[in-house]
Each structure stands twice: as structure tokens, then as C-alpha cells.
């Protein structure tokens, strides 16, 4: 039976000893979480939270001091596991003297692909990732964004079932970010599980179903983004009024606690507490103010994280 988790991380701790006379630095402490199969999981955390360190441990580049990782991928041997993982490093930097095409062929052959399959995949992917024009140039002439695109191509080349991406959106222009996000969504639709780190909350909110929030080497939250938002929904109501004059505002402020009051050209917007919403709406209608729009406030993931963080520390 296929498990719902594609990878399970249990109690991983990692201590770095930089110099023997310095105090050992604990980068990860008892990190436990799992990544859901068939979904996009965002791995959020500030700079230095330990995201890259954990990904390196998952990929076995460095050893953890304690803990265990279970991979529920095709095959049991590490060789087979690698065949079903596509990995994009944090700082994509490849062999400068090879051309992009040679490099991709190299990667494909390491993953036991046939030359004909490599050629076919490179043709399709490079167009999709808009790197096809540069494939016959040496990698050392690539810009940062181009390296990122080449790295992503290499990552998808062997059609792995699980993508592990360390900050895939960094170094890309706004259009590129959009394209990469679409690719993540498309790849999920094709049945892949995706785990990617980022410190940009709106990006994660946009494409992910699941989120893991790492802070100073520990997991603060893990689970579905929707649940997190529902749990933290403070259903304030917002109103936008047209041509709302100064005296009416003062009038209204005496009756209701108006929050986040702001003006933009002819529009005035504010929020009221949930228990005042009917009352407030009735008041506006009675007074014949020109109501432009109203609705329930949906908090942004970012604010929720600030809140969780405050509660935690």
C-alpha cells in the first residue's frame, strides 16, 4: 500500500562544530515532520533557520547527529531512491566549461536514461523553461536566472516522482517566478510530490497546499495551509464607501470601532469587528451612504506566521 507520506523526518538533530574552541552550534533540534504525497509543501523559515541544512541531510550530503528519515519512494536502495528524486540546489553552480546541453546529457546518463530519451526530454523541457536558446553555450556564460532554469531542467529531466527544491524562485525575474510557480503547479497535476524551501510567504501561499514552518532549527507549524487559515481566521468585516465625507466618518466612529481606516481618492475603507457587522451594514444603508464593496477579511499567511511566532517566543 502506498503511504500518504512520501518522506518522514523523525527527530533529526544537527550540531555544527566550526572551531574546536567555539561552542558547538545546534542548527536543527528534534525536527519531525512528513511531506504529503501528491501535494506541494512549502518549507518556510527565515535566513539561517536550517532549511538548507535539513535538505542536505535528506540528500545525505551531510550526516545528522541523530534522528531518522524514511523515504517512501519507488525502490528501497539509495540508488533507486535517487532515481525518483529531482533535486535543485540552493546555489545552482555547475561545470563552467561544459555547455548546457552537455551538462544535461551528463545528468541524464547518470540517472540511467537512454540517449534518445535525454534528447527528447531536453528538447521539451528547455522550451518549457525557456533556456533552449542558450543550451549550446558554455555554462560559465550563464546568468543567475539562466543557471536556475538549467538546474530546474536537470531536476525534471528523469521525470522523478518527488522534487526537492532549495529556493527554486530565487534569482528569477517576476515573469520567471510566475513561470516557475506554474511549472510547480503543472508538475503536481501530473502526480508529483513537491517539497520546496522559501522565505517568501506569499509565494508559498500561492502554490502550496501544505506548509512547514521552521524557526531557529525547530518546527513551529506543519499542516495544511487552509486549516491554518481557518484556525486563525479573525473574521473582521471590511467596508469600502464612496464619497464618504469627514463629518460622517466622525459620526460613524462614535458608534463603531473602525479599524484600519484609510482613504484612497474617493474611496474610504475600514474594518469592524465581526459582532458589529450587521449593525454597521444596517447603519450604512439607513444613512444612504454609497456602499462600494464589503466582505470578510481573510488573513494572509504571513500575518498568521507573525502571530504564531509571537505566541511561541
Amino acid at each position: 500500500m502506498m503511504k500518504n507520506e512520501i518522506i518522514e523526518i523523525s527527530n533529526i538533530s544537527k550540531v555544527f562544530r566550526t572551531d574546536f574552541y567555539k561552542k558547538p552550534f545546534s542548527a536543527l533540534e528534534n525536527v519531525t515532520f512528513s511531506v504529503a504525497r501528491g501535494q506541494i509543501t512549502g518549507f518556510l523559515g527565515a535566513n539561517g533557520a536550517g532549511k538548507t541544512t535539513l535538505i542536505k541531510i535528506i540528500m545525505k550530503f551531510i550526516a545528522a547527529n541523530s534522528g531518522h528519515i524514511a523515504y517512501h519512494l519507488r525502490g528501497d536502495s539509495w540508488r533507486e531512491i535517487c532515481l525518483s528524486i529531482g533535486y535543485l540546489p540552493e546555489r545552482p553552480y555547475f561545470h563552467p566549461h561544459l555547455t548546457g546541453r552537455e551538462f544535461l546529457e551528463y545528468m541524464g546518463r547518470l540517472n540511467e536514461m537512454k540517449m534518445s530519451a535525454i534528447v527528447e526530454q531536453v528538447k521539451n523541457l528547455s522550451v518549457r523553461l525557456r533556456i533552449d536558446h542558450a543550451l549550446d553555450r558554455k555554462i560559465k556564460s550563464y546568468s543567475k536566472g539562466m543557471l536556475q532554469r538549467l538546474g530546474m531542467t536537470a531536476c525534471l529531466l528523469h521525470d522523478p516522482e518527488f522534487l526537492i527544491l532549495d529556493e527554486p524562485l530565487s534569482g528569477l525575474d517576476p515573469l520567471g517566478r510566475k513561470e516557475f510557480k506554474n511549472i510547480l503547479i503543472e508538475e503536481r497535476a501530473r502526480g508529483k510530490s513537491i517539497f520546496f524551501s522559501s522565505h517568501i510567504v506569499p509565494d508559498v501561499e500561492e502554490v502550496c497546499q501544505q506548509v512547514i514552518f521552521l524557526e531557529k532549527g525547530g518546527v513551529l507549524y506543519q499542516g495544511a495551509i487552509d486549516e491554518l487559515i481557518v484556525q486563525n481566521l479573525k473574521p473582521n468585516f471590511w467596508f469600502v464607501l464612496n464619497d464618504f465625507d469627514e463629518t460622517s466618518i466622525v459620526d460613524m466612529q462614535q458608534k463603531f470601532a473602525l479599524m484600519n481606516l484609510s482613504h484612497k481618492e474617493k474611496l474610504t475603507s475600514f474594518e469592524v469587528l465581526p459582532d458589529q457587522k450587521e449593525h454597521c451594514l444596517k447603519y450604512i444603508l439607513d444613512k444612504n451612504y454609497s456602499l462600494h464593496a464589503f466582505g470578510q477579511v481573510r488573513p494572509r499567511l504571513e500575518e498568521i506566521f507573525y502571530k504564531i511566532k509571537e505566541e511561541h517566543f
Binding site: L83, L110, N111
Partner: peptide
């Protein structure tokens, strides 16, 4: 340069 990471993420 950490290019080794990408290589070793392959099945080798």
C-alpha cells in the same frame, strides 16, 4: 562550488 551536490543527488 557545491556542484558536487547536484551530481551526487543522481543515482551514483
Amino acid at each position: 562550488a557545491r556542484s558536487i551536490h547536484l551530481i551526487l543527488s543522481h543515482s551514483i
